[in-house]
Amino acid sequence: MKERAEVVAIDGQRITLSTQLKTACSGCTHNTTCGAGILSKVFADRNARFTVESDLPVNLGDRVEVVMDESDFTRYALLLYGLPIVGLLLIAALLTHFSPLTEGIVILLAFSGFGAIFVGLKHWFRQRDVKVQQLIQINVAAA
């Protein structure tokens, strides 16, 4: 997977990059008539900033290419999006089957678990940030 980014800060070997967040709608031919496509244009001005370590000689404003192996990207995406959904379903199923709680309480507890899994993943990803950084390569982007 490749993404273009701009160098916005340099601190030794730590490079802060900014990249434009894209939506799937940008590649669709129906994005002007679809409700989701119209909404995606409203939020089109979003940037992501992140810091990586690299010994690549870059200057402020340089355009670089961020490269990550697709299998690593897929694994982390499945973990980030799949685990909370599986957790929600599992919590709801277990509470429904093994407890005398009402349906509303089961729903509230299942969504609470869903949120707790997201918070847990956020902390886990922050601790693993160094390992994720090792999966990312920075290359000078072609003009």
Rank of each mutant, 00 (worst) to 15 (best):
Ala5Pro: 07
Lys131His: 12
Pro57Met: 13
Leu95Lys: 02
Val130Cys: 06
Asp45Ser: 11
Ile117Gln: 02
Asn139Leu: 03
Thr51Val: 14
Leu78Lys: 04
Leu21Val: 15
Ala110Arg: 12
Ile10Lys: 10
Arg63Val: 04
Thr96Val: 00
Arg126Pro: 01
Glu6Pro: 00
Asp129Ser: 14
Gln20Thr: 15
Val64Met: 05
His30Met: 11
His123Met: 14
Ala93Cys: 06
Phe125Cys: 07
Gln137Gly: 02
Leu60Gln: 09
Leu108Val: 11
Thr16Asp: 00
Leu108Ala: 14
Gly115Thr: 10
Arg46Glu: 12
Asp69Lys: 07
Phe98Leu: 13
Phe125Leu: 14
Lys22Asn: 09
Lys122Met: 12
Thr29Cys: 02
Thr19Val: 12
Asp62Trp: 03
Gly37Tyr: 06
Leu94Met: 12
Ile15Thr: 01
Ala141His: 03
Cys25Pro: 03
Leu83Asn: 03
Ser54Asp: 02
Thr33Glu: 12
Asn139Trp: 06
Gly115Gln: 04
Cys25Ser: 14
Cys25Phe: 03
Ile10Asn: 01
Lys122His: 12
Thr96Phe: 03
Glu53Phe: 04
Gln133Ile: 03
Cys25Asn: 07
Asp55Leu: 09
Phe98Glu: 13
Ala93Leu: 15
Leu101Pro: 01
Leu80Pro: 00
His123Glu: 15
Gly113Glu: 11
Leu109Glu: 08
Phe114Pro: 10
Lys22His: 15
Thr16Leu: 00
Ala143Asn: 13
Asn47Pro: 00
Glu6Gln: 13
Thr33Gln: 11
Leu101Ile: 06
Ala92Cys: 06
Val132Ile: 14
Lys122Tyr: 08
Ala143Glu: 09
Val132Asp: 09
Asp129Val: 04
Val42Ser: 07
Leu101Tyr: 15
Leu90Phe: 11
Arg126Ser: 12
Met1Lys: 04
Gly82Trp: 03
Asp129Asn: 14
Ser26Val: 08
Trp124Val: 08
Ile10Gly: 01
Ala9Gly: 03
Gly35Met: 09
Thr33Leu: 06
Ala93Met: 08
Arg75Ser: 02
Gly82Ala: 05
Thr51Leu: 06
Ala93Thr: 11
Asp72Ser: 15
Tyr76Met: 09
Asp11Asn: 15
Ser26Thr: 10
Asn47Arg: 15
Glu53Ile: 06
Met68Phe: 04
Gly27Leu: 08
Val64Leu: 08
Ala9Gln: 09
Gly27Lys: 02
Arg128Met: 10
Ser40Thr: 07
Met68His: 01
